[in-house]
Design a protein around this nucleic acid. Structure first.
Lengths: 336, 336
DNA sequence: GGGTATGGTGCAAACGTTTGCAGCGTCGCA
DNA sequence: TGCGACGCTGCAAACGTTTGCACCATACCC
């Protein structure tokens, strides 16, 4: 462990000079500064930041918590968060909760101790647990809302999300226009806030259009979850299936192909998010395009505004249905 | 900023008791401990760890540095690293360098200050820069070697990699058996250590088999890089092309499809890594299966062994060519 | 040459935390 | 009832770092 004392001794100056040479270089003579910084790097000195009691917004790092880094949705959001944060002079440290609420709470604490603020992408914890974990933490939420609790000390947490209700309404309208009257929905984990929103939005839209909505069940938000959901869809007699996200939709497509079901001839499939992968499979996936990069950037902007003492207001981003090859007219024959 | 003093005051005990109640619970009375921990969580207290000078291996966190989180290769490695580390009681914090050596050096410093040790996956920095950035840092390398520098104080960095040479040798043997005699190679970024190894291995294998190897150039290790490489491959008159990694190979496949080139009828394509995505496209990608999960686990094991004061030896993992639909016999007609 | 401003540096206090040491009270045993 | 042991707690020192304050030397102005 190399300390300021070691560097000071090697450079022949006091520890104050070392500290200043590294923290506020303009307050120290150029020659001294160069010598100190050179020796510091040679010795591999790393300031033990947080050692001082102040530590106010000076780590210049933010944390990002996601449920699953292997999901391209979060990978894209991560990239956007990082790009924006980096441009503003902040490093980003990412933690992956493996979709586990308990791990999530732990990671919030561990990240908060090492950074100035947190972006929580689609946290899976319940409202109460999340509120408890966020006491004393500067954070913003992405794809999740958290209304202020009863405790007046609990801070309101700003959030940025996409317009899930509008997205699924567009999906249902599209399917209706194609003639589909019996539509399946493969829901994601019950802990997903946007998942619940999407199912609720679908129900409302289906009722309005007089479309029968079949809830196929809740599945893991992965490719494998879609594989599982596909068989439920076939058994239920629906002519179209809406998946919680693109990954599940791709799993459904894959399973249908293996079972010899033509898409979109016999079954239409719709996803949500529009990850890049959705364009690479064939048929390409019809899906709701969510502006993931904007989402990540906006989350960072909200967080930095809070860190700088400003106020930040929650916002909701618009989405747009992107029609590709996986949806088509309802099969001509009688619905089996 | 809630401190031990606040908690102590609220709990009616001394700061020592608070510290002990949280750090070594067995040394404090059960009733006191419960009261302290309850008040601490209520107040949202986070220990300012690193404030004490000791800080020896007690953060129980490791850092993981990757060039690109959006690359499924690194996503998979990340998951494996995390699973193993979590099982051993360590949290993992991930940083993404965006393939930029300068950012890499910065992140190494920032991560090292917050964790007990680092796993560096495929670092892009040059040997000298990497060595400089690692002074005083406990780290292990994945898919990269770094031999001890001249400076005796510089630590040897243990590393775990896959057998690139054997992998590409298997690839070339496979293509040779299919009749290919003019094979293109789409190399990755020059800064990639394993990339250089793979190209070198291909050259050696091609020379041995009397196969003409055409270097198409170096490309970004992304999907887009492959898109670009595909046109070079078509222009060069090769009958098969070996990509630096699966992502590039998928880009090649996509571009060839758009240009109406049949795979594998007119052109064979081979990748490297065997990411999950390789099985989802059609034709499915022939690729070298690298044991990514083992790689991640092994890296963590090496790191933890070092952290616990043991010694750890570098190792190399075996690979296996996985033949799928993207390779086939050389076209019957004369090579154009 | 005297006086003053200025810029560079060191001293020492303070931060939040951990930990060795000692004091205190209680309990068990004879 | 007396004595020893032990569990629990507080005091205070120490960690590495930052920062207010003061000192000193040099440069500049008249």
């Amino acid at each position: 462990m190399v300390t300021v004392h070691d560097v000071a001794r090697a450079a022949g100056v006091s520890i104050s000079t070392v500290s200043r040479a590294l923290a506020s270089p303009e307050r120290v003579a150029a020659e001294t500064r160069d010598r100190v910084t050179r020796i510091a790097t040679e010795l591999g000195y790393r300031p033990n930041q947080a050692a001082s009691g102040l530590r106010m917004g000076r780590t210049h790092a933010v944390g990002l918590l996601v449920p699953d880094l292997e999901n391209p949705y979060f990978a894209t959001v991560t990239k956007a968060v990082q790009a924006r944060a980096r441009a503003e002079g902040y490093e980003v440290f990412v933690a992956d909760s493996d979709e586990d609420p308990d791990v999530e709470a732990e990671l919030i604490g561990a990240l908060a101790a090492r950074t100035d603020g947190l972006v929580l992408a689609s946290p899976r914890s319940g409202d109460a647990e999340l509120r408890a974990a966020l006491v004393g933490v500067t954070a913003v939420l992405a794809s999740r809302e958290l209304t202020g609790g009863s405790d007046p000390e609990t801070p309101e947490v700003p959030c940025v999300s996409v317009d899930d209700a509008d997205g699924v309404a567009q999906v249902l309208g599209h399917l209706y226009a194609l003639g589909h009257r019996k539509v399946g929905v493969a829901a994601g984990p019950p802990s997903s806030w946007s998942g619940s929103r999407r199912v609720a939005g679908l129900k409302a839209a289906a009722e309005q259009r007089d479309v029968e909505l079949v809830e196929l069940g809740t599945f893991q938000p992965y490719f494998a979850g879609g594989t599982q959901a596909a068989d439920y869809a076939l058994a239920s007699g629906v002519t179209a299936v809406v998946a919680f996200n693109d990954l599940m939709a791709l799993g459904i497509l894959d399973r249908l192909r293996h079972r010899g079901v033509d898409v979109p001839g016999e079954m239409s499939v719709v996803g949500f998010d529009d990850v890049q992968l959705a364009t690479l499979v064939s048929p390409a996936l019809t899906t709701v395009h969510a502006p993931l990069a904007r989402l990540g950037r906006r989350a960072v902007d909200l967080l930095l505004a809070r860190l700088r003492g400003g106020t930040s207001v929650s916002s909701q981003l618009p989405v747009e249905l992107t029609i590709r090859g996986s949806t088509g007219p309802v099969p001509a024959g009688p619905v089996n």
